[in-house]
Design a protein around this nucleic acid. Structure first.
Lengths: 145, 145
DNA sequence: TAAAGCTGTAACATTCTTTGTTTCAACTTT
DNA sequence: AAAGTTGAAACAAAGAATGTTACAGCTTTA
């Protein structure tokens, strides 16, 4: 199992918007070319990012723009925006533990807190990085090429 | 996306083995009944746990037993044993970023360390809990029912 | 030694998720 | 009005997760 590539795609898209949007119109076709991801998927990701208030897009005129300051967008915000994880949480619990078995009817109580703790540790780590850092690292590498 | 239910199934199975194996033979059929998971899947999970040196099973006689002390088995060990995550890591990176784009050819360099850090934070949290604690919590809840 | 009960495993089936594709209406600019 | 774009629905394809069937081989016990 893996976290959907929409997440890294979204980060890539946002980085492109920041790096290129002053010089050119960053369209879904351009982003499709840079990411290697289908343009409809790109629009889909952009749509989710827009719902989350992270980007602005407009029909007709084209070109995506950031809707927030770079340092106000964390990897966690992006991860949440593109629905990497459903409401059930990161772990898929087996669905029919037997309530007639003492272990079966209590395993959820014993495990849930610990599973949540692992998920939270993961998400907190994503909160530590902002798009500002990603963009700054990217620009630095580009300038040194 | 979610982490395969084989993980929680495995924890459930191991807890059952510890709780019940003194009084009875803990067969894959019994475990299937307690977990609500198909007996072949149970045997499959047991097979992976055996490969990882966590349980012993025997053809013919039946009945699974722990191969290690309870406090030497962490949730991380179980998670690794049942192959929750492949070698690529927790994140699925979009596969064809465009090397002709300055962002496309560098996005991996910028992101990989941060993705690994998030995965590591997650795994380290799983290392904090041993099966001893899971079993002890379970027995406590059962005794208070 | 035969029967019964169990494990190990392969092959296949089913369902769900992810990703891609086609299509087209609606919008904006020129 | 034409050209280029977004938004979104509907469908297709591929892959992953889970379940099912089937059966060979092991162990115990009668």
């Amino acid at each position: 199992m893996q976290i959907t590539s929409k997440f890294t795609t979204a980060v890539h898209i946002l980085t492109c918007i920041e790096v290129f949007s002053e010089q050119m119109r960053v369209t879904s076709d351009f982003l499709s070319g840079s990411t290697g991801v289908n343009a409809v998927i790109v629009r889909n990701v952009l749509s989710k990012l827009r719902s989350a208030g992270i980007v602005n897009t407009r029909q007709g005129s084209g070109g995506a723009h950031l809707a927030k300051a770079l340092d106000e967008i964390t990897l966690y915000d992006i991860y949440k925006a593109v629905d990497c994880v459903d409401d059930e949480g990161l772990f898929h619990f087996h669905e029919n533990p037997n309530a007639n078995c003492p272990v079966g009817r209590n395993i959820h109580k014993v495990m849930d807190g610990r599973l949540t703790a692992a998920q939270t540790a993961f998400e907190n780590e994503l909160k530590k990085t902002t798009l500002a850092e990603v963009v700054s690292d990217t620009k630095k590498i580009i300038s040194e090429e």
